[in-house]
């Protein structure tokens, strides 16, 4: 671990840029996907089209997307914006389906009662549907968070610096310690993000624990993370 001690500043810099490159797509992806999911859930016909599009989008390899984007949105090849935009698209692709399921999980009886009590449509959407979709939204967001944290590292291949740069550099210089620091850093970051989301969910949705003992995500975030590490997405 002497390598780490000698390069702490560099690792911290890379960590910070990794955090930044992850947080923006996660937040943007969530904010964009929730209304899409809400709309898709209300319109079954649109739902199929939207979710198929999202699924197809998700099959485009990330490296290819990083390289194609500059010619589409007019950025430079080394611009971190490419990574942010691409990962936001992936985040939307995963999250839209989760969000649609989340709104679908809200009991029709409760919505009916809310309407009968005199909620206007917008009030009902924000004060009833959104919070009640919360537990499933949180589960979806956890998957998005770990998947984004792991995908950011692919950006290193296009010259956007982040913890993934420790892989490329360590591979080039045959430095196992450097690669190991990169792996540990990314796993730790993913776990921190996951923990923060779970914590935020508990604080924002105190009622959900009184009705169900655990909120389980449809796909275990760690499993999907492991898949990415195996290179499934590169």
């Amino acid at each position: 671990m002497r390598w780490f001690e000698n390069n702490t500043d560099k690792v911290v810099d890379l960590l910070l840029s990794h955090v930044w490159l992850s947080v923006v797509p996660i937040v943007l992806g969530f904010v964009i996907a929730v209304p899409i999911g809400w709309y898709a859930n209300r319109h079954p016909r649109v739902r199929g089209v939207l979710l198929t599009m999202a699924g197809v989008l998700y099959t485009v390899p990330s490296l290819a997307l990083f390289l194609i984007l500059p010619s589409i949105i007019g950025t430079g090849f080394l611009d971190p914006l490419n990574v942010v935009v691409a990962l936001t698209m992936y985040a939307v692709a995963i999250m839209a389906r989760s969000a649609s399921d989340a709104f679908g999980s809200v009991s029709p009886g409760v919505l009916d009662a809310a309407t009968a009590a005199g909620f206007a449509p917008a009030g009902r959407a924000f004060q009833v549907e959104l919070p009640l979709a919360g537990p499933v939204l949180v589960a979806g967001l956890r998957v998005v968070a770990v998947s984004t944290v792991s995908l950011v590292s692919v950006g290193a291949l296009t010259g956007v610096n982040n913890l993934g740069s420790l892989f490329t550099e360590g591979y080039r210089t045959d430095n196992d310690a450097e690669i190991l620091v990169g792996v540990i850093g990314i796993v730790a970051l993913a776990l921190v993000f996951d923990g923060l989301i779970v914590l935020a969910g508990r604080l924002l949705l105190p009622w959900s624990r009184s009705s169900r003992s655990t909120t389980r995500s449809p796909v275990s975030p760690i499993m999907s993370f492991a898949q990415h590490l195996r290179g499934g997405r590169v």
Binding site: S107, G109, V110, D112, A113, A116, V128, S208
Partner: peptide
């Protein structure tokens, strides 16, 4: 006033 079967209470409040 409206009262329905299964009460229809908002579970998050």
């Amino acid at each position: 006033g409206y009262v329905m079967q299964n009460a229809g209470l908002l579970p998050h409040r």
